[in-house]
Computed example of a mutant assay.
Amino acid sequence: MQGQKKRKVDLVVISDVHLGTFGCHAKELLLYLDSVKPKKLILNGDIVDIWQFRKRYFPKSHLEVIKKIIDLSAKGTEVTYITGNHDDLLRKFTDVEMGRISLVDKLVLELDGKKAWFFHGDVFDASIQNAKWLAKLGGWGYDFLILFNRFINWCLTKMNREKYSLSKKIKNSVKKAVKHIQDFETVASDLAIENNYKYVICGHIHQPQIVRKVNKFGTCLYLNSGDWIENLSSLEYHDGRWSLNYFKKEDYAPEVVTEKDVKDFQGMLAAITITSQPEKNK
């Protein structure tokens, strides 16, 4: 993206990046962040995955995402980090401000005269509130599924075949998962309408969405920024309009695979092997 003019955007929302996990697409996120110049950047939860953090795995590209966010704030972008469930340890520091970076649990903004309510969305998830250990265990399994899927897609790409999402296939085939997403959207929208918010913007369920919600009390626009594990999606608000953006590799300069990339991949595989081995009693 060097030398290419950056798009000016009023507001960018990203969530569920999960830095520190094998499934995170940090390099793609860096390309996206290099392509925009937002007035405001809202990080809507689960940016750093503290639940699944491993000392053995935090690649340079993951660190560069953090550096890029700090760099954006230094150049004038107002950055708001809304805590999620995978980075809930940061909630101890709620309302801390460092320059143009602030840390909050939720956020209300007025966008062109309309109230917008931003929060991650884990407060609606009973599995997290009532059995955090079970949710964490599920997170580890999801991480390995995503990594395995990336290996499959690497093989499919070599054979000039279309990529395939195992997790999306599983989610779409399980009625309970589909109902969970629908219930999440309904609860968030009903609460927004009850509190006179015209927009409600969430993350958490890794399901990018912009949809008009209506009940007997009124209407609001429900938005979800998706994730940077499977969908590689973000929300943008500019000139009074919302848009949902998906990362497309063809929109950027072709990526050259270097010897360092190969070593990083080998290191990732080594980290998986070490992580999967049971610890011996000391």
Rank of each mutant, 00 (worst) to 15 (best):
V65T: 04
N85V: 00
P59G: 01
L89P: 12
G76Y: 08
K92P: 06
V65K: 00
H62A: 15
K55I: 03
E110R: 08
D95F: 13
K68E: 11
R56Q: 12
I101L: 01
E64F: 05
T77K: 07
H86M: 11
V96K: 15
D87W: 00
A74F: 04
L109E: 07
K67E: 08
K115S: 04
H86N: 03
D88G: 01
E97A: 13
L72D: 04
T94R: 07
K106E: 15
D88P: 03
V104A: 05
K55P: 04
E78R: 06
H62V: 07
K75T: 04
K55A: 09
E97P: 07
K106Y: 12
I101F: 01
T80S: 10
D88C: 14
I69K: 13
S102Y: 07
I69Y: 00
E110F: 07
G99R: 02
I70F: 08
K92V: 10
V108P: 07
L90P: 11
V108F: 06
S61H: 14
R100T: 11
K60W: 05
K92L: 06
G113V: 09
L103R: 10
T83Y: 10
I70T: 14
G84I: 04
F93S: 09
I69C: 01
N85Y: 13
L103G: 13
K106F: 08
R91G: 04
K92Q: 08
T94H: 06
G99P: 01
R56Y: 15
W117H: 09
D112S: 06
E78Y: 12
L103D: 11
W117K: 10
L63C: 07
D87Q: 02
I101A: 14
L111Y: 00
E78M: 00
G99Y: 02
V65A: 03
T83I: 06
E110V: 01
L72S: 02
L90R: 10
K75D: 13
K55Y: 13
Y81L: 01
V104R: 15
L72W: 05
G84M: 02
L63D: 14
K92H: 09
L90G: 07
T83F: 15
S73G: 13
Y81E: 06
L90T: 06
K67A: 13
K55F: 10
F58R: 13
V79I: 03
F93W: 05
